[in-house]
Write a protein that binds this DNA or RNA. Structure first.
Lengths: 246, 246
DNA sequence: TCAAAAGTGTTTGGTTTACACCCATGA
DNA sequence: TCATGGGTGTAAACCAAACACTTTTGA
């Protein structure tokens, strides 16, 4: 795939923070840039007749192989010097480069999206500018290009605030999951441990889960039950947030 | 003030939903367009070396006379046909118009900001394209140009969700206010009535208000006490949200 | 057979809800 | 003097937090 700058809107880009949950850890999908070996978020540009959502979803289809990804816009990053904040970006836009790379020397206002995916369904695929595409644990992420660390932080913050209003469990977990898995997800996102018994009682009280007859086989210790989301009830419950207030 | 298109980024605009609270009603600041007499949100364009925040704040300084307005980005509106959704916008971008108006025929991706201001401090001022600038009650707003009704709805929705995380009372009310006033604000934003006594107990339990010795004079009936926000405690309390959770 | 994980239930204390009485003020 | 709005208090219902015992499983 070649990169034709003329079909895109100048000055506007999108960057996506793709979250996955695997082995009780929150992961983010990252790309390693060919020229500098520095890591970056999957991103792209917006075609002249395309919404931002379509652009984000088109790019992520290429990076993950998935259609119909859960995507939410969360913030816009518009510092006029954002691309100059990092030496790697400077090098990327080095005028000595070929014209595809020169495109990066424009000022870009980037719209941030976060995506929630089922980790095991993703096939990480590099793009034109990168040679690797991999999951990294959220707390092991190194320095990224430009302001991408900041973008991830903002995405995480948003995710935490929206935990009670977005179908986060549904999109990050496999269709069938155990109560301890769901609890670990909540604990990871909230950054604190929760009481097993109180968690179970609370989450069940929302009536958003169907308890299945199956249990998770294979693991050591007592086999936990499997659950699935009751999508209809989940959606309804999220409209008012998962718990009260005024 | 003339409108020089060259100094602005193409394809990017900002639109602001300026909220005020007056006589127990939530108000929004609107402009009436010269050519079509249709109403629109205050908005503008982004200079080539300016952040979006700066652009929004510059425009609002012109429309309200206020510096240091509380501003939050809440969403981006990027439908490629958004400006064609409404006959008024078509007319605005009529090629027969002068060059300033022709600028509008570009595709614009608009970043939405909401602003919270102290109603009585605002001096509504029209811009180059409008002849009137006025407050309108949120539930009396007519059809606006382009997708501006949608932008307001999204702003309101965001405001409601952020009520417990943003200093909304502080920015919408005058420095000194009564408990009933604060309650009306909450009731308006939440769209439901609250018990007077329970509201007071709850809000006081947060320790975010200083009770003053003064009472509000002049009104009929028993004179209510005045309060002011204890900014330090308010900010701290908002960091965790105004009430619990997990 | 034991350590670790998972299923289930109870007690306690705090918060929220619902509701009542008295006071001040202008009409 | 009365209607209206505002200040303050209390009992009951509910919910959340803390905590213990039993079961299952592979090592």
């Amino acid at each position: 795939m070649y990169f034709e700058t003329k079909e895109f809107l100048k000055h506007i880009s999108i960057d996506s923070v793709v979250f996955g949950f695997h082995e009780n850890q929150l992961k983010v999908l990252l790309l390693r840039m060919k020229k500098t070996n520095e890591w970056a978020l999957p991103g792209g540009f917006v075609k002249k007749q395309e919404t931002l959502e379509k652009a984000a979803s088109r790019v992520l289809k290429e990076r993950t192989g998935l259609n119909d990804i859960f995507l939410k816009q969360f913030s816009v990053f518009s510092d006029p010097n954002r691309s100059r904040k990092n030496p790697a970006a400077k090098e990327l836009s080095d005028p000595g480069s070929n014209s595809s790379f020169a495109w990066f020397s424009n000022r870009f206002i980037s719209v941030g999206y976060y995506a929630l995916v089922n980790f095991s369904q993703v096939e990480p695929t590099p793009d034109f500018f990168s040679d690797r595409c991999e999951w990294q644990s959220i707390d092991e992420i190194d320095r990224l290009i430009i302001d991408h660390n900041q973008i991830i932080n903002k995405a995480l913050e948003t995710l935490r605030l929206q935990l009670n209003y977005q179908p986060i469990g549904y999109n990050l977990l496999p269709p069938k999951f155990t109560m301890p898995q769901l609890q670990k997800l909540y604990e990871t996102l909230l950054g604190k441990t929760l009481d097993r018994r109180n968690f179970q009682r609370k989450i069940l009280s929302y009536k958003i889960l169907n308890k299945l007859d199956e249990r998770k086989t294979g693991g050591a210790h007592k086999a936990p039950y499997l659950y699935e989301f009751n999508l209809e009830n989940y959606q309804k419950a999220l409209q008012n947030g998962l718990y009260g207030g005024w």
